[in-house]
Amino acid sequence: MSPKSPTLGTLLRGLRTRRGWTLREMSEHTAIPLSTLSKIEHDRLTLTYDKLQHLAQRLNMRVSELFAEPEPGAAPQAVTARRSIGTLDKALRVKTDNYDYFYLCTELRRKRMIPIVTRVRAKTTAEFGDLVRHPGEEYIHVLEGRVQVHSEFYDPVVLSEGEGIYIDSQMGHAYIVDTGCEEALLLGVCSSADEDLMESLITLHEQEGSL
């Protein structure tokens, strides 16, 4: 079987990563809104040829170069030692209709693993809305209450305190409070090769509600 061709989103994210830009910096360089770039990188939006020409001009590239894959065998990144202690009082709080998110260890930039404490309020899939998708994988562990995990390819499953689930985050998914619970508290860890995963997640949250 021949390998799957990369999408515009994959190529654009790779280009941004090679230049060492965050999603916000890419937006500033290209004059394309951050939320639009996020949708492109997540393969939820494409661009017309005129828009591609504009993007290439802003990046001082030819349109054909946007679709050029990097050469294999790139040198590995240097190993660095970092640490951060995560507390709720120092967390970045993002409030939406369905959740309260508490992003931990936010002083570390370009993390590939994002720890999040989440308070779940949505009680039905209708209340939740469309399933969420984003790059990478995630593990969710129930700290308080019970949640129903709804996903694109599996039947719903109920998790109680002390139980967790590991999923492919690119699969549509939603966490809602189980019957009989008012709220639930989760500890989640999202990971991705995308160094700007946190900005991508927050962009998705902005579409759910307001900061």
Rank of each mutant, 00 (worst) to 15 (best):
E41D: 10
Y166K: 13
G180I: 07
E25M: 12
P3G: 03
P115W: 04
R18P: 10
N60E: 08
L104S: 00
H205I: 08
E69P: 14
M1H: 07
T10L: 11
S160G: 10
R18N: 15
L187P: 03
K90T: 07
S210C: 12
L185H: 05
L52D: 01
V177G: 00
E107W: 04
E182A: 12
M198C: 11
I140W: 11
G188M: 04
L104K: 02
L104T: 00
E161A: 08
L47F: 02
V117E: 03
E182L: 07
S84M: 11
T179Y: 03
T80W: 12
M113N: 05
L211E: 10
V189P: 07
T124A: 13
S2L: 03
I167L: 13
V177Y: 06
L186C: 12
C105R: 07
I116M: 11
L186E: 11
L66Q: 12
T124P: 14
I202Q: 08
P70R: 09
T125Y: 00
I167D: 10
G14N: 11
I202G: 05
A74Y: 15
V63D: 14
C190F: 02
Y139G: 05
Q77S: 09
G188H: 08
Y154T: 01
D100Q: 02
S191M: 07
F153W: 00
I40D: 04
S192T: 08
L66R: 14
T7L: 13
E163M: 03
T125R: 01
A126H: 03
G164T: 03
L55V: 07
G86H: 00
L201H: 06
R44F: 02
H205Y: 08
A122Y: 00
L92D: 05
S35Q: 09
A184G: 10
R82L: 14
A74I: 15
S64V: 13
T203H: 09
M198F: 15
S27E: 11
Y175C: 12
L92H: 10
L8Y: 10
T106N: 04
L143E: 06
Y49S: 00
G20E: 13
Q57P: 02
Y139E: 13
I167S: 09
R82F: 15
P33S: 15
Q53R: 02
E25A: 13
